Computed example of a mutant assay.
Amino acid sequence: MKIDVSDYFQRATIEELKQGHLYDPKTEQHVCLICGQCYEEGVIYTDGEPTAFYEAKKKVKLHIQAEHESMFHYLIGLDKKRTGLSDVQKELLLRFYNGFSDSDIVKELGGSASTIRNHRFTMREKLKQAKLFIALMELVEAKNDEAPKLVAIPQHAARVDERYAVTEEEKTKILQQYFKEGLNGPIESFPKKEKRKLVILQALLNRFDREQTYTEKQINEILMSAYPDYVTLRRYLIEYGFLDRKDDGSEYWLK
């Protein structure tokens, strides 16, 4: 079973982000932070071989290795607005991770060994700053339990900007305003404001099965139950990175 891991990803600890999975005591599941694949505690899983049996925690680790290469490769591939890294920094980090020497990097990317050393120094300074910032923010949030909680940013959002600065309270009001008959009912209109669009589109994602592929006709039928202009809804779901499709439009799926 796969689930939306946007909220899990946002509240994961540094260690959980590094290992690529976390344990949710409420559902008693080990969850892959990349794709949302879940493995239930207490269940024994096989790996295609009759004599190979794994507990849930071991199985999720094997899943990440087999399906996603590593958490490092997933994180390094995230958008610049998520990581704050330039293309040059990504190229360097990838080579640092793979154990390249400074001279090897110079041969591949050009420049000089002293320039590469300066990059290493700068990144280590950023690491120190990031640790301090995390400590400060955790102290702030611990001190202000009643501060507005922002909604989780979807994992595969195409762009991350101020449109996602929506609190849980705002989200609830928007959903109540547009879904008069409940979240499974229709909306009376599709808003022009970006924040409202995003909230509505995210709510519509719950009408799809994360593990299923759809034809365009099926997509249209599902969206038509929400709003007559299903073409607009479909276009925004693709544009915002929530829905993906083959180039010929023959298959659609949730990203």
Rank of each mutant, 00 (worst) to 15 (best):
Q37N: 09
C38Y: 00
C38S: 06
Y39R: 03
E41S: 13
E41A: 14
G42S: 07
G42M: 05
G42L: 06
V43R: 09
V43H: 05
Y45K: 05
D47H: 06
E49V: 11
E49S: 08
P50Y: 06
P50H: 04
T51C: 08
T51D: 14
T51Q: 11
F53C: 12
Y54W: 12
Y54I: 06
A56N: 03
A56Q: 02
K57V: 11
K57M: 11
K58V: 14
K58D: 14
K59G: 04
V60I: 15
V60S: 10
V60P: 10
V60H: 07
K61T: 13
K61C: 08
L62F: 08
H63T: 08
Q65W: 07
Q65M: 12
Q65S: 13
Q65L: 14
A66Y: 10
A66Q: 15
E67M: 15
E67C: 11
E67K: 15
S70K: 09
M71R: 10
M71P: 14
M71Q: 12
F72C: 04
F72M: 04
H73M: 09
H73E: 12
H73L: 08
L75G: 07
L75E: 11
I76L: 13
I76D: 03
L78C: 14
D79K: 14
K80Q: 09
K80I: 02
K81N: 15
K81H: 11
R82V: 11
T83G: 05
G84T: 02
S86F: 01
D87H: 03
D87V: 08
V88Q: 07
Q89C: 00
K90D: 04
